[in-house]
Design a protein around this nucleic acid. Sequence first.
RNA 1: GGCGACUUAGCCAAGUGGUAAGGCAUGGGACUGCAACUCCCUGAGCAUCGGUUCAAAUCCGUUAGUCGCCUCCA
Length: 471
Amino acid sequence: MSVFNLYNTLTKRTEEFKPNEEGKVRMYTCGPTVYHFAHIGNLRSYIMEDVLEKYLRYTGYDVKRVMNITDVGHLTSDADSGEDKMLKGAKREHKTVMEIAEFYKKAFFDDCAKLNIKTPDVTEPATNCIPEFIHMIEELLKNGYAYEAGGNVYFDTSKLEEYYVLSNQNEEELQVAVRDDVEEDINKKNKTDFVLWFTKSKFDEQELKWESPWGMGYPGWHIECSSISIKHLGGYLDIHCGGVDNIFPHHTNEIAQSEAYLGHKWCNYWFHVQHLNDQTGKMSKSKGEFLTVPLLEEKGYNPLVYRMFCLQSHYRKPLLFSFDVLDNTKTSYEKLVNKIAALGEDGTLMQQDIEEYRKKFKEAMGNDLNTSQALTVLYDVLKSSLDNASKRYLIEDFDKVLSLGLLDAANTSVEIDESLAEFAEKLIEERNQARKNKDFAKADAIRAELAEKGIEIKDTREGTVWTMAQR
RNA sequence: GGCGACUUAGCCAAGUGGUAAGGCAUGGGACUGCAACUCCCUGAGCAUCGGUUCAAAUCCGUUAGUCGCCUCCA
């Protein structure tokens, strides 16, 4: 197994990855809140986490990955996001909260599929695990890490020896209610305490409520990840993933409650993906253009172009989105696919050379997932003196991790109607005859006629070839 | 105010102490009736100031700018 160096937010260093159990990786990802569409900034994280998972598999690890689906939350009173219109719209159509959750959950996985993001081995909706949440909270109360106040159950952060393990905040400087849409909760003993179970909250219209030892209510927002992770992956987690905005307080609180519950260190590596920004800063649902995968498709972009856009950058660097850069990437992607499509099938696998390039690929990826460098290795392969069979082999091999659908795109194995093919062949022949006779007006007219049917032609040295135009 | 990160050519971006990968765009050329595709050629001294070193984009410190987080956007 090759060396895999990974940046760890916990230690703020790049360190060699070593799982708890030899050859096996337990990995947890904070999933989406399914009450609106995911924007492409959210999806950047899921793309990079997908690359991480696939690279671990590529190097031979047996990976088990779990993701939660947050389908409980203050769904009916979401006033801090501009997208509640969608929710209201759905309500006007007499849909329940669960139906809305179901709708956006499907939308999320549709987006993921288009971006070649593998579905985790386990995806668990929070509403499936209420008994587990309650059990964990009961244990925390029993062990003195939690208290009841004002109808809610809170985690007592003062009971921990170390609370700020992830974020290096300090108690004195931490400001409460920095955001003006947030009010201070007077029930808390310490300002960093957080709610484990609500029965009373400012969000009175909570639609989903469950019976609990503390009354009808619903779980706090941090308990779900700890509980679902421990449920499926046990008490020793290798990698926990998420966007950087989760570091504090979400992940900090997860560590607090999980380790208080378990009584030992919980997770060794914390993987955080930086944000996608637009001209105004962090991409969000409430400002600027609300960019989604279906919107990119409408604008004529293959979603995999966006995946490549993300892979060209490093996951720990803020990335600025613009259509100019996406256009660049689109051209790069198409050129790359063209080059691959032009490869023949000839040759026998040159094992030794193949290993050389695989080694380079692993060096790039093993260096804290340097995907940009890995793409360069792919370009190097195409430019190399390897035979076509070896090149194809390597492209397929790298694409197990990169998942840009390169060979599929290159093979354009679109099912083509036979009569259409005959039609195309016939007109191309006519056109070539016209070209021979220097009747270029007729030749161009035929090309236009073919274009209308979605057939694009190219005059190559080997003759005229045609393809179906994309979309 | 505190904490965290980022700053390399027109744009994206690699680089982890020895004299700046790659991609896109640009310009030039080959090919083509034209177009498209393809191929060849084409560029920066690394935000600032200072330090360490024989040697720094790479290490240390300063300043500036950009971004994120600081309790319910997971």
